[in-house]
Design a protein around this nucleic acid. Structure first.
Lengths: 341, 341
DNA sequence: AATAGTATTGCAAACGTTTTCATTAATCTT
DNA sequence: AAGATTAATGAAAACGTTTGCAATACTATT
């Protein structure tokens, strides 16, 4: 269809074909109003004919933005991050940016490597998940003066601009719901909190809230489970096999809660009559399982979308006004919690 | 810590600080063996001190690879693609590449836009999901001579190199499993097949296989559901509310199957005694629900990982030997299927 | 019809690298 | 100890754009 010699269709090839200078071609793209309609048409035709595609790398060398934003997540393969990534991607796409994505598997050392890698590509900004990052990462960001932001967690004193929810509050809300229902003997299943400030905040505020209300959680009521339904199920079974079992299970996230639910069911326990279960997150699907999972809703899509919009605005503005947005949480009471016996 | 004037730490700043020429600095990175250890040390120190980060865009202008690979998916927010993306990302990262990710929401027009956008960034290769793409997309890829591949679907006569599973076979296997159990009255719940060759292949081969065995599926036994547990649940309820209900439900993917399972349960039907349900995919979580979902396993992680490895090898080789890799399917029989009454 | 604008275009420098080629310094040969 | 290699470095051109400035060709004004 559009036959051309080699892969070297550049702006000067277009210029030649249209019988104008390269400058004019460039202007046609960047300041169309400065070039006469007739010339513009010639150039457009040449572009079509040769199949020219602009080269952002070359543009970038003139102080233009690269048009890319880096996002570094712990893992992609995780319902909740997938939702955030999707929303973030769509939002920045709207503003003409492309997403450079990297994951680090909850390893803050690797996170640094990834940020560095993204910076070699001269991303116009880099977004990280959570507020806890290595010293090296912060230094790198400051040094390179790359716009950066944190997604997912909100804290009023965060170093980076952030858009997210208050995970401490999430933990508090979950605990309070259980307390209100009269539960005093509560089991906890959380993921490893190292390098995971979301989980850490949730867990510590849960403990705090319970303590404030005179409820203490002994060591044997706590279990650790990674992000896996199967393993959470095992953890729940172990917790529920104690002589005197807890009347409720508070889980660090919805996946764990789902596992806990299956675990309880497999032990022949009725939920919520015999044991109440609450999660945090409200993942896609949490509403649909039977019975519907009671949880604290963290609006992943809203967060991702808002973060993308706000970040691109931040990047393209000259003033670079820092921002901190807190997204609301919601107690979603479905079928897995009931009052304590 | 490392104070510097402005954001303009380039190779010549490093050269100046190390009292050598820019050429030598460049060589230290690209051909360390050509520069004396002493000089190398000086330069390394200067790099540290100034916090220099290499500029791949500038490198790219010398025919070097950009070090990025574009991946265009229908959606990120989907268990199965999330798994593929993660594996693909990890694999190309191993080879020193970074992922540029874009999604098109099952719209082939937008897919074209996304591919184009990625090409402006001069990705070293672009990977697409599935084998069905717009004419314009194919033309663009051919014209730009950008290495491209298809992920997820396998076909022996595919235009693009591909790594994936044979979705026709998947459909056949699901149908055969049901036939073997004696089912003759089967309901079908599939997503919209437009612009989704995976679903299309599955559906057509299911129909074919049933027909071959003398089983026909009337219109009223077919239902369409998007990728959503809730909507699939509704679709299943509608199918199962017929006067004479089907003895089995064959679902286009596991999410739909999960919804179908909940739907059946909510109608008070026992699975698999009253109705059998089979999915396709074996998503994470399909093993854990109660009862475990019978399904045809498509090894997403293997596919993503293999695709990443193979594609980077393809890109970096001079010969550019095309490839087509078929990943095996597996019938995973769990608890949701049983013999027909 | 001459003057002053204004609209359109081209020239050339610049961006941050890599690389070829040339130059200098160091080491080896005999 | 002189010539011949070899190792280490630098100078300058090149990559594909953008943009400030200068030049040209119009158009409007009087």
């Amino acid at each position: 269809m559009a036959p051309k010699q080699k892969g070297n269709v550049d702006i000067v090839a277009v210029a030649k074909a249209a019988k104008v200078s390269p400058s004019t071609v460039s202007r046609t793209f960047n300041h169309p109003d400065l070039v006469s309609p007739a010339t513009r048409k010639k150039i457009t035709r040449a572009v079509q004919k040769l199949g020219y595609v602009r080269n952002r790398a070359a543009q970038m060398m003139h102080g233009k933005r690269s048009g890319t934003i880096g996002l570094v997540v712990p893992t992609i393969n995780h319902a909740i991050f997938a939702e955030v990534i999707q929303a973030f991607s769509d939002a920045i796409d709207q503003a003409g940016f492309t997403l450079l994505l990297a994951s680090h598997g909850y390893d803050l050392e690797r996170e640094y490597e990834m940020v560095r890698k993204l910076m070699e590509h001269r991303v116009d900004g880099v977004a990280l998940i959570g507020l806890e990052h290595s010293e090296a990462t912060s230094r790198l960001i400051a040094q390179q003066e790359t716009p950066a932001m944190a997604i997912w967690n909100y804290a009023e004193d965060s170093e980076l601009p952030c858009v997210g929810a208050d995970n401490r509050l999430a933990g508090r809300m979950a605990a309070e719901h259980l307390l209100e229902l009269g539960h005093r003997d509560i089991g906890l299943i959380f993921p490893d909190t190292r390098g995971n400030d979301r989980a850490q905040y949730r867990l510590s505020s849960v403990m705090e809230t319970l303590q404030e209300n005179g409820v203490s959680v002994p060591e044997y009521r706590m279990s650790e489970a990674p992000y896996s339904v199967a393993q959470a199920k095992l953890a729940a079974i172990s917790l529920l096999s104690a002589r005197a079992r807890p009347t409720a299970l508070l889980c660090g996230n919805d996946v764990i809660a789902q596992g806990a639910l299956y675990g309880a069911q497999s032990r022949g326990l009725r939920v919520p009559e015999d044991v109440s279960i609450i999660g945090i997150g409200d993942f896609k699907g949490s509403a649909d399982i039977e019975p519907g999972l009671t949880t604290i809703r963290i609006p992943a899509e809203t967060i991702g979308s808002l973060a993308g919009k706000r970040f691109t605005a931040y990047i393209t503005s000259d003033t670079r006004e820092p921002f901190r947005l807190r997204c609301g949480l919601e107690s979603i009471v479905r079928g897995t919690t009931g009052s304590a016996a």
